[in-house]
Simulated assay, not measured.
Amino acid sequence: MAQTAQAVEFRSAARHGVPLYQQPQAQAAKAFVLSRGTPVEVLTEQGEWLRVRDSAGSLAWARKGDLAATRTVQVLRLSAVHLKPDSAASVVFRADKGLLLNLLDNTRTGWLRVKHQGGQEGFIRIEEVWGI
């Protein structure tokens, strides 16, 4: 029996204070609130609602309009961002756990090209972040 692979889809909170709900309805209890740029994995779609998972594994519902296609990644632990996709390359900056970085490119070599909100760009190992 053949199985088809499904692409993992991520989106980011479009603004600060995006509410996530326990059920796919505005009257449902709020599960938690996202800061602008926080990535979530999209699991399923139901009308104008998306079932999502955050980096901690928590499940909730979000309105489609509250999530943007802009891609960010969330740093999992203190990590170095390098000038080149090479661990021997000079370090551009260190990224603290929880820091959100704009995803510029997935090199498909285990490195991601990212940009800090301050404008610094560099490469980080894919296993150092969540949201890809």
Rank of each mutant, 00 (worst) to 15 (best):
73 V>P: 02
125 R>V: 09
74 Q>C: 09
92 V>A: 11
108 R>D: 12
25 Q>S: 08
120 Q>E: 15
73 V>T: 09
81 V>W: 02
119 G>M: 07
72 T>A: 07
40 V>I: 10
28 A>T: 07
41 E>Y: 04
108 R>H: 14
33 V>N: 06
117 Q>F: 05
126 I>M: 13
32 F>M: 12
69 A>P: 03
101 L>Q: 05
36 R>E: 14
44 T>C: 07
17 G>E: 08
89 A>P: 07
84 K>N: 10
108 R>S: 13
103 L>M: 11
7 A>L: 08
42 V>N: 02
8 V>Q: 08
63 R>G: 11
76 L>Y: 03
4 T>S: 02
47 G>A: 12
84 K>T: 01
10 F>G: 04
104 L>Y: 04
45 E>D: 10
73 V>D: 01
59 L>E: 13
98 G>P: 06
123 F>K: 00
108 R>Q: 15
16 H>Q: 11
53 R>S: 09
109 T>M: 07
68 A>D: 15
4 T>P: 00
87 S>L: 08
19 P>L: 10
10 F>P: 02
47 G>C: 09
86 D>I: 05
126 I>Y: 06
17 G>T: 03
109 T>F: 03
107 T>Y: 04
53 R>N: 03
46 Q>K: 13
48 E>K: 11
41 E>F: 03
81 V>S: 04
34 L>P: 01
89 A>Y: 07
7 A>D: 03
37 G>P: 06
65 G>S: 12
83 L>T: 10
51 R>P: 01
40 V>H: 09
49 W>Q: 09
18 V>E: 02
62 A>N: 09
48 E>N: 15
5 A>R: 02
77 R>T: 11
47 G>H: 10
34 L>M: 10
36 R>H: 12
16 H>N: 15
